[in-house]
Design a binder for these strands. Sequence first.
DNA 1: AACTACCTCAACCGCGTTGTT
DNA 2: CAACAACGCGGTTGAGGTAGT
Length: 308
Amino acid sequence: MGRAPCCDKASVKRGPWSPEEDELLRSYVRSHGTGGNWIALPQKAGLNRCGKSCRLRWLNYLRPDIKHGGYTEQEDRIICSLYNSIGSRWSIIASKLPGRTDNDVKNYWNTKLKKKAMTMHQPPPPQPQPQQQHYHPHRHGAGGRVLLVSTPPPPPPALQSQCVPSMQPSPASAASSAVTTASGDTCSFATMYPPSPSHPQSTTFAGYTSVSAAQPSPLAELIYRVPPPTAAADCWTSGVALDDVFLPELIGSGGDFPNGDLFGGFGQLLQDRSSMELSACYLLPNPQSEIWAAADHVKPAGLCHSLT
DNA sequence: AACTACCTCAACCGCGTTGTT
DNA sequence: CAACAACGCGGTTGAGGTAGT
């Protein structure tokens, strides 16, 4: 038994909005505001529409500061950076793009940006990796959770990914990237990336946390296989770091993570996210400002301590 | 010109969260 | 504290537009 509908769908108009309806809604909101009650608004405004529909129309289309289309490369980078880090939190991503709505960003990602990223990433032919085991499932616990413990493969030189070339594998960091919790959970980073040229103060991590499947997700694969830095493929190496667009709000006014709980602020934000497969950390010079975009019930001691 | 396939994006749907009583 | 109402969000759908044949 589902929830009761918010309005009588049989008696309200649905589908595309007419210019007259737009004008009714626009003029009503301009003169009265939304009144904090979208359900009551259509009746007051003389609209035969569901309140949710009015809200959506206003927020996604009629609001005066809305921009449509014409995404800049900078906006692309922000979307990619944030998507890589927090996944499909479109409202959060859109909040970093003035004039953009979550619906617009979501559509843009789904129809254009994702394809752009994927087409620039052609999976390499499978090659034996005798020195490294890239995906090493560990099964533990009663639930049979599978963890992917990864070490970075040598980056395929021919690959390009528009979203991730700023992420450069660092073998030195990968060696110590795995951590194990007291309960046996394992969390490891696939790669650690040096600072981008435009953001020398920031370092980027990307990696995996526990997932419930034996194979990495396509996006994890995309992030995982990263081209080495080359001048030709450097179009995204100036990718916007999260500390520019995101971190201040995440860490809030306090900004300090307690010692030994480096990801407290971000973990709280993401704690309800149960199926995120891909994780990314953006590290600042001050280790206390590290953030960890991950979830899925992994609590490696120290690093991912406060995620769930 | 006609048809088909593909793409875009506005709108809908349902669920989780938050606020109110 | 429970029940309810409304909001907000993310996933999905489908109509309309465009490109290709």
